[in-house]
């Protein structure tokens, strides 16, 4: 007893004096080393800030027709010009950020919840549960996602909620596959076996033992899913399947596409906004992936 205690304390005392970094600080350091990811994060922060502060920055109704339709950017004090109904494009873009980010975030959350639940169950229980859940997943994988989303939105009329749910419902299969693979790998590892040997219930093992270790790839995936969901929302809006009560970037493109040749800015500006946001999400995803990967920390 005393001997071993002494040995331990001696060992600790003998350890070199290098400062031990907290894992989170390590993670931040790693992330900050990736300049592209930092740029992505900055863009993301700016967009989220614009979305949150929209009523403070510009207290104007985005649906208000303020001027002559299709004014080019910069004319009559409209920085981004006006759209086909004479609405200020700058106001539309700023208010559109709220809707676009909300739909993107909500759809990504739905994707994560469905995908994670199904993937975790399949990967943890294996056997017939896995078989059944994977066949269901495959069923959804073979359906063309945009077509299915269109049918869902058309069926339940286009509102913000149905659009977010439809996008979530068609895009969870990737997450499910990923989660299943992680759970299959982790469930065989010693710390999981240890948890089971001390009588841990399945629910506890899945959510508290395995999940925290399976999260990194899922978080990276979630960041990318937000980008994909934004593109999906834009595609649906372009096809006319958007909530007419709210202004989103996709809706701006959809509404103005008839004027593409006469007033290209009405489509280009929201297009650039979508491009920047999706790019930012993609860069953030890359950065997170690198930062989570312990093998890269040695470099």
């Amino acid at each position: 007893m005393t001997d071993s205690d002494n040995t331990q304390s001696r060992q600790i005392d003998e350890m070199p004096e290098t400062p031990v970094e907290h894992p989170f600080r390590q993670f931040v350091t790693m992330y900050m080393r990736n300049y592209a990811a930092v740029a992505g994060l900055l863009v993301f922060v700016v967009i989220v800030a614009a979305a949150l502060l929209a009523p403070v920055i510009l207290n104007v109704d985005p649906f208000e027709m303020v001027d002559v339709p299709l004014l080019p950017p910069g004319e009559s004090g409209h920085l981004f010009g006006t759209d086909n109904l004479g609405r200020d494009m700058l106001v539309s873009i700023i208010y559109g950020a709220r809707v676009t980010m909300a739909v993107g975030g909500a759809a990504a959350a739905i994707t994560l919840i469905i995908g994670l639940s199904i993937g975790a169950m399949a990967g943890y229980y294996r056997g017939w549960v896995d078989e059944v859940l994977m066949r269901i997943t495959e069923f959804f994988q073979v359906l063309p996602p945009l077509l299915l989303a269109m049918v869902l939105v058309a069926l339940f009329s286009p509102t913000l909620e149905t659009v977010a749910i439809a996008i979530g419902v068609v895009s969870w299969t990737g997450v499910a596959r990923l989660a299943r693979a992680e759970f299959m790998r982790l469930r065989e590892l010693d710390f999981v076996k240890a948890a089971r040997s001390i009588g841990g219930r399945d629910r506890r093992i899945i959510w508290l033992v395995i999940l925290p270790n399976a999260l990194p790839p899922l978080i990276v995936n979630a960041a990318l899913t937000v980008g994909i969901a934004i593109l999906f929302e834009a595609a649906l809006s372009f096809l006319g399947l958007s909530d007419p009560n709210v202004m989103s970037w996709g809706k701006l493109i959809g509404d103005n596409r008839d004027y593409l040749l006469d007033a290209p800015w009405t489509v280009t500006i929201p297009g650039v906004a979508i491009f920047l946001t999706v790019l930012a999400m993609s860069l953030i995803g890359d950065g997170l992936n690198d930062a989570f990967n312990p093998k890269l920390r040695e470099r």
């Binding site: 109704d61 649906f63 208000e64 027709m65 086909n84 109904l85 609405r87 006319g240 007419p244 009560n245 509404d255 008839d258």
Partner: peptide
Amino acid sequence: GATWKRWSEITKAQLK
């Protein structure tokens, strides 16, 4: 058709 949708959006803005 885009016309009806545009019409409804203008009505919304005008009645506000």
